[in-house]
Design a protein around this nucleic acid. Structure first.
Lengths: 240, 240
DNA sequence: GTATGTGAATGGGTTCACAGCC
DNA sequence: GGCTGTGAACCCATTCACATAC
């Protein structure tokens, strides 16, 4: 899926931005933010550069320069030929394009280890969202404070999400709880869900679900590693 | 990168399997395993089906039928026209192709909330890997038991990984510790790294790194949600 | 000279549509 | 009739190479 920008027929920016590009823009933004921070921090090098080349930024972000330049054309022209990109301008531009200057309220459901990690992980800000409410079903957890927020009863999620205008939910519960939680969130007006539980969620067509399977990432790494070690495909254990 | 299977000139399988396909195969395998479990479990429906059609399996896995059939052709022919796929045969086939019947030992570094979540998450088995060693730098954590394993000192990681023949590492530490940890792992012979810390790791070319940025997933969800709510694209509000 | 912006080529992956087989 | 297996078309994304601008 690509993000469709309705109509901007004439010059300048306003093309649909590919999903892959959006992901990389977020990476560039993080790198640039660190750069600016380093430049204004205590150990600011004299003559901090105001610009950066696509080659340098690409190296820091782990992509190819051509790919980066292509990505930036979706925002318009922030670069100067022969010179590079103005760091401040570029930062502002990417941030605006990503909507990272807003902070959409997010509900996080399930505060086991993963949920707590997410609550802490996302504490930064400047990323386009903020964790605004925490929910769990375990009475032992309800009422405790995590990352500055009190964990509330999942039973209250509908009301709370509606009142706070929360449109994004994160599910970090065990597998069996994921579907019921999704139902509650959808009922409360949530339109986008990030799901860390295994399995496919059933939701209305207009609700967007993004799934992250942590074990899958490891499984793929193990697969590639296995292929490296042992060329034989349908693996009968060879001598070792 | 695609996984190159060197030579299987005659019949059967042996083509390079696209990365995207590998990821989906893992999903099919999980769905099939749950199916078989349900069929032999306490509430086994009478006349449990021995086969499944691409349409049904695709729906359960959340993909299109044609895509699934294309994926399965990389393994060879496990289906029967007019009937479907033999569930048992298909399960075995995918498992073998993915190397999910082996269990590569994995070292997990960093046992904060995320690390503990991963240690528990990956407890299943049948996924091609097993968590074999835990490391942390915090004396408060070293010696404690998580998911049946004792947390060891990161200083011992080199020796332990070498002795255990560990080729896969997971980094779930804070950002500032990621690079030194990667250096230690690479020094110990680790060839594949799954990195949950932000930032790019510098490693030798022959070491494969896979990065997962949890906040990035949320950021992309927020981006799409923002686009839905507010059509106005590039709000270059600033011109200072 | 140096670095951006971009047409054009390339490569991968998905989807269609139907031939082939049960 | 039903469903798989697959050539072909399509779409998206990356990469090259160079015209363009400073």
């Amino acid at each position: 899926m690509t993000a469709q920008v309705p109509d901007a027929p004439d010059g300048g920016h306003g093309r649909p931005v590919p999903d892959a590009t959006v992901a990389r823009l977020a990476v560039y933004l993080r790198v640039l933010t660190e750069l600016r921070w380093a430049a204004t921090g205590p150990a600011a090098p004299l003559g901090h550069p105001r610009t950066i080349s696509s080659a340098d930024l690409a190296r820091l972000a782990g992509v190819k320069p051509a790919n980066l330049r292509r990505d930036l054309t979706f925002l318009g022209s922030y670069g100067v030929r022969g010179v590079g990109y103005d760091i401040h301008l570029l930062t502002t531009g990417i941030s605006a394009a990503l909507g990272a200057d807003r902070s959409a309220p997010v509900a996080l459901v399930g505060l086991g280890n993963l949920g707590q990690a997410l609550a802490g992980y996302a504490g930064f800000g400047g990323r386009g969202f903020r964790i605004a409410a925490l929910f769990d079903a375990d009475p032992q957890r309800i009422g405790r404070t995590v990352a500055g927020l009190v964990i509330q009863d999942i039973g209250d999620a509908g009301r709370v999400c509606r009142e706070a205008g929360i449109a994004i939910g994160v599910i970090a519960t065990p597998e069996h709880a994921a579907q019921p939680v999704a139902d509650v969130l959808v009922g409360a007006g949530v339109r986008s869900i990030l799901n860390f539980a295994p399995g496919v969620l059933l939701v209305p067509d207009d609700v967007q679900v993004r799934r992250v399977d942590l074990a899958l990432e490891l499984q793929m790494l193990a697969f590639h590693e296995g292929r490296r070690a042992d060329p034989a495909p349908t693996g009968v254990a060879v001598s070792s």
